[in-house]
Structure formats: structure tokens, C-alpha cells
Design a protein around this nucleic acid. Sequence first.
DNA 1: TTGTATGCGTTATCAC
DNA 2: GTGATAACGCATACAA
Lengths: 335, 335
Amino acid sequence: MSTVTMKDVAKLAAVSPRTVSNVVNGYLHVSDTVRARVLAAIDELEYRPNLLARNLRTGRTHMLALIIPEIDVPYFSELARDVIDVAGDAGYRVMIDQTAHDHERERELLVGNDRNMLFDGILFSPLVTQSEIAEMDQATTLPLVLLGEHTFTGRFDHIAIDNERAAHDATQHLIDRGRRRIAAIGDQPLEDYQTPRQRTAGYLAALAKAGVTPDPALIVPAARYHRVDGYEAAARLLAEAGRPDAIFCYSDLLAMGAMRAVLDAGLRIPEDVAVVGIDDIEEGRFSNPSLTTVSIDKRHIAAASVHRLIERIDSPDLPAVQIVVPHSLVVRGSS
Amino acid sequence: MSTVTMKDVAKLAAVSPRTVSNVVNGYLHVSDTVRARVLAAIDELEYRPNLLARNLRTGRTHMLALIIPEIDVPYFSELARDVIDVAGDAGYRVMIDQTAHDHERERELLVGNDRNMLFDGILFSPLVTQSEIAEMDQATTLPLVLLGEHTFTGRFDHIAIDNERAAHDATQHLIDRGRRRIAAIGDQPLEDYQTPRQRTAGYLAALAKAGVTPDPALIVPAARYHRVDGYEAAARLLAEAGRPDAIFCYSDLLAMGAMRAVLDAGLRIPEDVAVVGIDDIEEGRFSNPSLTTVSIDKRHIAAASVHRLIERIDSPDLPAVQIVVPHSLVVRGSS
DNA sequence: TTGTATGCGTTATCAC
DNA sequence: GTGATAACGCATACAA
């Protein structure tokens, strides 16, 4: 049991606990001889500060909560990796909470985390609706940065790509490839949720610019963005008359499922049906065929959001900012 | 600021803090009228217990550390998902630390976590060597469960599949398919690391049973188990004379890379080269072709290890156990 | 530059 | 069944 406390170190070094604290926390005004004595005592006793006590005293835990739908969705696991790394470099550790697409649970996590003082701040990748975010605005007082959503409420910082433009670029690429019957998978018309809405807007804008009349039958919603959802949506598209010659998926994972469905239908990618995604997960670099996608710089998102959150922890009254992270089209085998 | 404390609740309910604590913690001997009064006060003030103070007082944080190489490796993100879920159901939260294949960092994490009282226990998926685990045995005093490695030291619980048998089953399947020049990717001959060693043993055992003389040139090491490592290893194999007719990869991720290399070489899967992995990550269910693999029940591993860790937290002197989680071969398109 | 004393918010030990 | 009070280990206001 690490029941060796600061007091023990103080006694062995023949100084007061105050001085030990000064040494541990790297304060300046400690004479070299005393510091050496204290460090020797720390070393001998193998003393480590009890973080629980320190946290209670300072009110800071140097822990962040990362709230995401599911850690096993590649986009989130790749993002989490960078978040943990960047936070670690800044002296913070990261606790992961999964909302599992449950709005109720999402609210509980936010409010619970808020009140129990366990975290200095929250990185939140929401699937809540606009109105819920407004409600959240009232309920939460902890520093919080929103990932992936550009939705305007007063208090929160937002970090995301330009969703509309990303969708536009993906669609434009398919148009440039000569495709005209371009399907879109991932809309969520029933939800008051910004990301899919913006992507559909970008898709429609690109079609309009090219003078292509959108076919509502080609816009297939997806409740979640898993492989199986992409598979089912694409299978449905291919089963109907007026088959698409390209599919734009709102996430790479949807695209992986969609590609599988196209192949299962006996069609060729990209000759018969081209496929494009968004995210640039590593899986798409090795898939067969490799996946054309809109690359999101996750490291950039992680760094910007962690640093912004820490800024806000240190200065809670900073005005909210919107940070737009650049994206770029990566053309691979699927188109 | 949630600066509303137990004292405030006590005052409003006209009871002592002690009674509030009793109510919050669900102790029995509280009269119904008093309990109702306290609950009403809690509700009115929106009181939430300060977990930092509780943690300091009780010495328990109800937080676990999950130490893994990288969260963005699908096997680990799928495992982490289950670990977080299972732990959550048991009232624990999970902090993820990534060792990034750095032995030094791995040691620091273990020792650091150990001394600073922040976690009640550690789930550790090691890449350390046998001798390092022995050393660790001395340095650490926190409840700790080892994932994935079966290596015998006195103090730690181990949860894993039977690696040798899993490798045997995969190889045997390829033999049953009529393959004889079966390559293996993933050995780590320079490391004193059990998992690859056991898998190579299983591979060799299956060959021996079938009367196939192993060709050392077909056993290709891989320092890490990423897609690119599988790609490079397979590319090397295919470039040499005496091309294999099957490749057994020690992880699905290696297999994804290997499949890509086979296809890039203009060969067909499984007609020219069959491929088998281990892990059963979801990616392999949708890949083209879909991947034959040894399925590991990650939910089972997560549940067994979390529950065992909690048992050990509650009763530190329990004897160490070895839990072997069942595996099963899943045959898909790649073989 | 260093020592003394107090309090962070909770739980637990005693009494009543 | 409930109330006063000490203590968890640390950081800091104040004093020296």
C-alpha cells in the first residue's frame, strides 16, 4: 500500500510538509540543499503524491471526458487515439464514455459529468438535436467542446470540417467522372441533426451546379453509420429500377458496406458503380477496391479541440469559437 | 459552479450531514419521513456528491485503467467497447492509456498508475516480455488483470484464448482445403513474448500432424500487427520463388494487408492464395473477399476480465487464475 | 526561504 | 435512528 504520505517525506528530510509540496510542485524558492534532501527522501520512500487528495484540494483533476457514440467505429477510434495522445502531451488523461446512440444516456452523461467534479472538461461528439443542445446549454457548466457539429448556440466551441463543402466535393468528383445517377446514403431526415443535413445540402448543390435533377429515390437515409447500414441501403438501391452509377456515402463505414453490396449484386466497382465516402479511415486504404474519400485530418481535430478545451478550462469566459478543419478529396480505386 | 455541498442539503432538510450521507449511500436505518425530506432537499438544490471528496475519503475511485498498445487497432477498439460497457454496468468507468508499443512507457504507466491511487485496478494488454512482467510483479501492488498473454507469474490473473490451439485450428483448416505451402505472418522471434510464440507453435504442430515439412522461408516475422506490416510481409513472400498457396496471419489486421498484397500481385483469393486471420474484427466480415478467421469472443474476454478485476479489488488476496476463453473458426470467402 | 494551521467535501467513529 | 466530530492527503494563506 502506497500509504507513504507527504508528512513521511517531510519527517525523513527534516523539513515541513509545505517544503515538500514546494519541491514536488516545482516552486522556485527552494534552496538547492533542501531540495536535494527532499528529493532524496522522496526517492528513498518511493513517495508518489496522492492524486485524489491533490484533486480535491485544487479542484482540478487533469482528466477529460471524451463522449462519443461508439469507440469501435473506426472514425472515433482513430480520433480517440489522437485525442489521448495530444491530451497526454498536455498533461491530461482521457476517460471515454459511449452514448451508444442513446439520447437519454447522452444527457445523463453530460449532466452527471458536469456535477460530480471528476473532469476538468468534456469533448463531446453529439448526436443530439439542436433543441437538446440548447437545453444542454442550461444544464451544463463544465468547459465543453463540440466535435463534428456546426450548430450555433452561444456557449460552446465547435470543431468540425465544412460538411456541406465536403459533400459537395465528393459529389463533384463523381460528376467529373461522368456519373449522373448519383445516390446518397446517410441522410437523416427525421432528426434535427446538422451533419447529415449539411451533407445532403452539399450533395444537392453539386448536382444543381451540374444541371442534374436530383432523384429523391436516390437519397437513402441511414439511421446509423455502420457497415451494415451502408450494405442495406445500397442493396435496396440496387434492387430497384433505375440503378445508380455512383454512390456517395456520408461515412467511410457506410461506404464499406455499400461496396460489399455492390459486389454481392455482381456489379463492378468503379466500372458499374463508383463509391465515395467521407472520413478517410485506414480501412479504406487497404480495401478492395481502395476507397475514394474525403479525408478529414483527425490529428488536426484532436489537437485543435484538446487545446481549445484546455484554454477554456484555464479561462472559462472566453467567447465561443468555430474552428473549421480543412478536408481534401483522396481519389482511390473505388471511383 | 456546483458548489452545493452535503452541508447545504443537511441545512435545508434540517438534519445532519451524516444523515444526508446515509440517504445518498442508501443505508437502511433512515426513517421514511427523514429520507423523503432529504431527497426533496437534494432535488431542490440539485445536489450531486463531489466524487473527488468521496474518492479521497473512501480510497476507491470506481475507475479502471485499460492499458493497450493502440486504441485504433480494431481488435482493441472492439474490446474496449465491451470493456467500457461491462465496467459501466458494474459501476466503473474506464480510462484508456496507450503504450504505443513503447516498453518504457508501458512501465511508467504501470508504476505511475500504481502509486497515485487514481484507479482501483488495471486491465493490461501487455507487449512486455516475460522478464519485464516479473519485474512488474515487484513494482506494482494494484489489482491487475493481464489480457491476451498466458505467461506464468504468481500474482496476476490472465484472460486469453488458447493461442496455440487457435493457430493450430487456422492452419489445419488450410490443410483441409488442400494447401501445403502455408506461410505464417506475425512471428516475433526476437521478443520474449508469448502470444506469437504460441501461435507459431500451433502452426508448426498442425503442419507436423499433416506430415508437411515446414519451410523456414514461409515464416515471416512482423514487428507490429498493422495492415501495412501484413502487406509488406506478404509482398515479400510473393516476390520470392516458391510462392505460398496460403497465408496464415496472426491477426486479422495483418490479414487485411496481406490480402491487399496478394491482389496487387495479380493473384486471386482464395484460388491462388488463401488467407486466414485471427480476431474476427468486423472489417473482415465486409471485406472483399470476406476473411476467414479464428473468432475471439471479445465480449466474453471483456466480461471475464472486468469481473475478475472487480473481484480482486474487493478481495486482493485471491489466488491468481487463468481463464481460457473459447475460440472458433469462421470460414468465409478468403479460404 | 520555510514552518504552522486550515480546509477542500466526504465518510466513518463515536456517542446519544 | 440521528447528531457532532475527526480524518483522508494535499495545497495554500499567513506568519516567521
